Amino acid sequence: MSAPAYSLRDVTVRLGERDVLSHVTADFAAGRVHVVRGASGTGKTTLLRLLMGLVEPVSGSVTRPEGARLAAAFQEDRLLDSLTVSANVRLPYGRVGGPERARLLDETRRALAAVGMAGLESARAGELSGGQRRRVSLLRAGLATYDVVFLDEPLRGLDEGSSRATMAWLLQRLEAKTVLWVTHSAEEAAALPSPVLWTVDGGCVRPGSM
């Protein structure tokens, strides 16, 4: 059996005076889709931020994969409104030109078409609707070069058609990747390939569905 991508050992994370996660021990297997569920405010986002290294525990230990390339889509879309859709999608790559830029432009056009946003690659992000902004943030994460991707309620706010199209596109990008996917939706979780289910509740992280 391969080593887990992430290991938590007796981890406590404190925000202010509150222990959001308390004495958590868990292993997240590499190359699997991990679905994290739980009520609002229970610490699901904090768990993702802990695994990404954006917060550190006050006690316990966290083992993260050395040298892993990370991608993420947060609950906030985090787009640069003055840039075009295409430029926002290319942000993880920095400045690129020549054949690489042409490849990214082509991938972006095809991805936009797949999620119902054909022809919007030159639109300014500030001109987009909320659902369109959400999809652009997901395309940016999905088109990045990564080993591990963190998706915090990725389909939140999308209508049924957009959600279905975006899910179908994302599923093509997740093969053989380590995925941490936060959702409130049982249907969304069931659509993912052989998901490993986790529940966050009362400061605890335990395997299994709600």
Rank of each mutant, 00 (worst) to 15 (best):
S2P: 14
A3I: 00
Y6S: 02
Y6C: 02
S7G: 02
R9S: 10
D10V: 01
V11C: 13
L15A: 04
E17F: 09
R18I: 03
D19F: 08
D19E: 15
V20Y: 10
V24Y: 09
V24S: 08
V24I: 03
A26G: 00
D27H: 13
F28R: 02
G31P: 08
R32S: 15
R32L: 13
R32G: 08
H34K: 12
V36K: 11
G38L: 10
A39F: 09
G43W: 10
G43Q: 12
G43V: 09
K44Q: 10
T45A: 11
T45I: 05
T46I: 13
L47F: 06
L50C: 04
L51I: 04
L51G: 03
L51W: 05
M52E: 14
G53D: 02
G53Q: 03
V55A: 12
P57D: 06
G60W: 08
S61D: 14
S61C: 07
V62F: 09
G67F: 15
G67C: 14
A68G: 04
A72Q: 12
Q75K: 01
Q75S: 01
D77M: 06
S82G: 00
V85A: 09
N88R: 09
N88W: 07
L91P: 05
L91G: 05
P92K: 12
P92S: 12
Y93N: 04
G97F: 13
G97K: 13
G97I: 08
G98D: 13
G98S: 13
E100Y: 13
A102S: 11
R103I: 06
L105I: 01
L105Q: 13
R109L: 00
R109S: 08
A111M: 12
A114C: 05
M117P: 12
M117D: 12
L120M: 14
L120G: 00
E121V: 03
S122Q: 15
A123Y: 14
A123C: 11
A123K: 14
R124V: 02
E127Y: 06
L128I: 07
S129H: 03
G130I: 00
G131Q: 12
Q132D: 03
R134Q: 06
R134I: 01
V136Q: 04
V136A: 05
S137A: 15
S137V: 02
L139P: 00
G142R: 10
T145L: 12
T145N: 12
T145D: 15
D147G: 07
V149I: 15
L155Y: 15
L158E: 04
D159I: 06
E160V: 14
G161M: 08
S162Y: 04
S163C: 14
S163L: 13
T166F: 11
L171Y: 00
Q172T: 08
L174W: 11
A176K: 15
V179L: 09
W181M: 00
S185C: 06
A190V: 00
P195F: 09
C204K: 15
R206D: 01
P207T: 06
P207G: 08
G208Q: 15
M210G: 13
